[in-house]
Design a protein around this nucleic acid. Structure first.
Lengths: 360, 360
DNA sequence: AGTGTTTCTGCAAACGATTGAAATTTTTTG
DNA sequence: CAAAAAATTTCAATCGTTTGCAGAAACACT
């Protein structure tokens, strides 16, 4: 009398005692169904996809077995087979404001209706992390990438390499600047112009600009340009002493910028983002300057943060949801037809919203 | 004179006119290197992984070629081969506050140092989206899932199925309630008790509780419990008329809750989250009630939102980064040793931070 | 020259799923 | 009733990578 252990198919012998417990098969495969029903894997495959060349009887038997055994197709296998994943990767520069969330909502709206999945990664304004995220995305064989660069001078080669590999790439919000790719952006210059014009018309003369470092975020350059044009149009001399470039884009950077302006005559601040504006505004309040009476403050981005601070913040609000939608539409178009034009540019409208922080 | 086109290896004929352009090979594979150097794929594979059984000379030649040709290993293939991806999936209920971002930072901190990649998906407080995200994650064959359920009554079966498939699962922040799984949470009850105690000691008598629907977020039940205990301890009668359950967790829900309290005597509000608290506070201000003089307001979560509003918000601040770190440690431990205890519970400390909104 | 080591490289199977072509079975037809 | 046609199922290759085992080449030692 003896006892043998047969290992059938790809099943490994589970060791329920510990260690190798993880080697228990986790998924039911097409092979398991084939073995169970004593048919070939190809028959199972075809039956499950409803191929009419499989007899109805067999097909139903297989489908029933699949259901009973809890079969779910393994997409990694399918991905490998077809070299596509029906997944779009999104790279955002930050996730701590609701801005990105709204854009992502727009992206998901379109993707969902086109049967695409979405994975999101945040680079936290760090170019190295951005690179890492791009690598992960590529590794997952995503079908296309929607990205917002955190620094227009970084990772340029990587993006170009992605393009060379014919992986569709679309940029949104921040201007990619030195990469030719479809993009969904806002007319920063014009919008900045109108906002500053509003400040001037309401009687402000010494308008400061708090912007991101011009060498990292190109939009900052454009908004600065619009700012400068507005000054010029209204005959106000440009004063470089009240133009501050910040290190980062956090509340603290806005506060620091105000500190730098301490000894300059300033009756208004136009900040590159709402976050900077809010940081600046709170610092102003804490040093005893009234907003908007002493200093008017305006931002750019337009998230609900603007309405929870007091005074409520004047801002330029790009249509974020729409921006996401357009970006998704573009990428899907480029996946379907990779030879589409790479220089397509969609300009998203932005609403200038006047609130308490610039009143009077 | 004639012209033939040879298709070598798996390269498909690119049709530069349109349609099939996407079938151009996107990636350099191990096969391409093998063909180029006229060696077998196995030799290339071994050489690239530094196998000592490959002659140094050959190895270096292959490595050089790989570099030159821009080879990157295709992890989808590796995944299929090994059934693991070295990737952890994170499901967050929302991304529009910095809370999740901090937790994710903590997760990424640990994962990065343990060579795990992280993919994140937000369910936007929607159980259906949560399900969808879980499905995507499973499809990518992620090695483990860190999740924060948006509704403790939804998707329970799905989570249980995930556990049955021996995919490690860890919950954070919100109490999974009816699923036995390792979890990283805060002692809601005790912290709520202390916060309410502080309100009582500073002279408040009619303290309202604004909480999420008790049937969706279990933590709300616990904070309510702590609230009730504090009242009892100080001999204040529990008044159900000033306990409001909100539909959602947005600013507007906080505002609506205040509207519901309009005809009740209330001199303090303890809200389930900062978002609700801020929504409530702003509504109070807009109907002419002073915070904190007329009504003190306190929240729970502790993000930098609390310091940008005025008055600044008193809150309970769980150590979010640490929470993420612990969750990541737990999941990595369970991946390494799937038979670890499923009932492990890590309690993260939370700091009660007293600010202007409850002064006086 | 023949045998035994060592060192190196290639074959082939495997992961799970798909699919054209071939093989099998069943049905139809003269 | 046999041969052709149709219906159904299987074989085998494929996606990119890894790896045990077999086989080849190179070398040393009788």
């Amino acid at each position: 009398m003896f006892c043998e252990i047969y290992l059938v198919g790809n099943e490994k012998l589970p060791n329920f005692e510990g260690e190798n417990f993880d080697s228990v098969m986790k998924y039911v495969t097409i092979k398991d169904i084939a073995r169970e029903l004593v048919v070939s894997v190809s028959t199972v495959s075809r039956a499950l996809r409803g191929d009419p060349s499989i007899r109805k009887e067999t097909r139903e038997k297989i489908q029933a077995a699949a259901k009973r055994m809890g079969y779910v197709p393994n997409p990694v296998a399918t991905n490998l087979k077809f070299g596509r994943t029906k997944t779009i990767g999104v790279i955002v520069p930050e996730m701590s404001t609701p801005y990105a969330a709204k854009v992502i909502d727009g992206i998901q709206d379109i993707c969902y209706h086109n049967n695409y999945k979405v994975i999101i990664a945040s680079s936290s304004e760090d170019a190295d992390k951005e690179k890492e995220n791009l690598d992960i995305m590529m590794q997952f064989m995503i079908d296309g990438i929607i990205a917002c660069r955190c620094d227009y001078n970084k990772n340029t080669e990587l993006y170009k390499k992605i393009q060379e590999q014919h992986i569709p790439l679309v940029f949104y919000d921040r201007i990619p600047h030195n990469i030719e790719a479809p993009q969904v952006i806002v007319d920063d210059e014009t919008k900045a112009f109108f906002l500053v014009e509003h400040l001037i018309r309401s009687g402000r003369k010494n308008i400061a600009y708090i912007g991101a470092n011009f060498d990292t975020v190109y939009n900052s350059v454009l908004r600065h340009k619009g700012y400068r044009e507005a000054l010029q149009r209204y005959g106000i001399e440009y004063n470089p002493n009240i133009v501050v470039q910040t290190e980062g884009l956090n509340y603290s950077d806005g506060a620091t910028a105000v500190d730098k302006l301490r000894h300059e005559k300033t009756d208004a601040i136009f900040a590159f983002t709402d976050t900077l504006a809010i940081g600046a505004m709170n610092r102003l309040k804490s040093i005893g300057r009234n907003v908007p009476r002493d200093v008017a403050v305006a931002g750019f981005s337009g998230t609900n943060l603007c309405t929870i601070v007091s005074p409520q913040l004047t801002t330029v609000e790009p249509r974020q949801f729409e921006m996401g939608q357009k970006a998704a539409e573009l990428i899907i178009k480029h996946i379907a037809n990779p030879s589409s034009s790479k220089s397509e540019q969609v300009i998203i409208d932005a609403d200038i919203i006047y609130r308490e922080s610039t009143e009077g």
